[in-house]
């Protein structure tokens, strides 16, 4: 097979939506859970990203990170550093980060006004 690495094969244009200035909110319950997770240490940040996949095509990706090489918008929400990757800003503008306290299917939950549908477990949307 010729793979194009020895001769130039132009990379396909990946659909790049316009970056938007993200605004997001966090419920009291989610804030309280983050306070438990972070303690007094505010050097880390909450990374709220989107990956491809899941039942609906896009999946939320929440991580606690010190830093990231991914280009991000940095927000300060209720005293926490929140990072939103620029590449997924159009999917995350206006979201509310909530925390649902129940034995099954509990945990952080994203309420997203941009989602036309989401799967039952709430991790995936389109």
């Amino acid at each position: 097979m010729d793979c194009g690495t020895c001769e130039s094969a132009t990379p396909l244009q990946v659909h790049k939506p316009e970056e938007v200035d993200v605004s997001l909110t966090m419920t009291e319950k989610a804030t309280s859970m983050l306070e438990d997770a972070f303690g007094d240490d505010r050097s880390h940040a909450l990374l709220v990203g989107v990956l491809s996949g899941g039942c609906s095509g896009y999946m939320y990706d929440l991580q606690i990170v010190e830093s990231t090489e991914t280009p991000c918008q940095e927000l300060n929400i209720n005293g926490f550093r929140v990072l939103v990757p620029s590449a997924s800003s159009h999917l995350l503008d206006g979201i509310e980060i909530d925390y649902v306290d129940r034995l099954m299917g509990g945990g952080f939950k994203i309420n997203n006004p941009n989602a036309s549908s989401s799967c039952g477990c709430g991790e995936s949307f389109s």
Binding site: C3, G4, E7, L12, H15, L51, P85, S88
Partner: peptide, 23 residues
């Protein structure tokens, strides 16, 4: 397929190249 894949590369380390013309 290209439309389906390319709209889902969200800052992930993925680069798509069409090498159909070579093979």
């Amino acid at each position: 397929m290209i439309d389906h894949l390319s709209s889902r590369v969200l800052g992930q380390d993925v680069v798509l190249q069409d090498i159909t013309h070579l093979n």
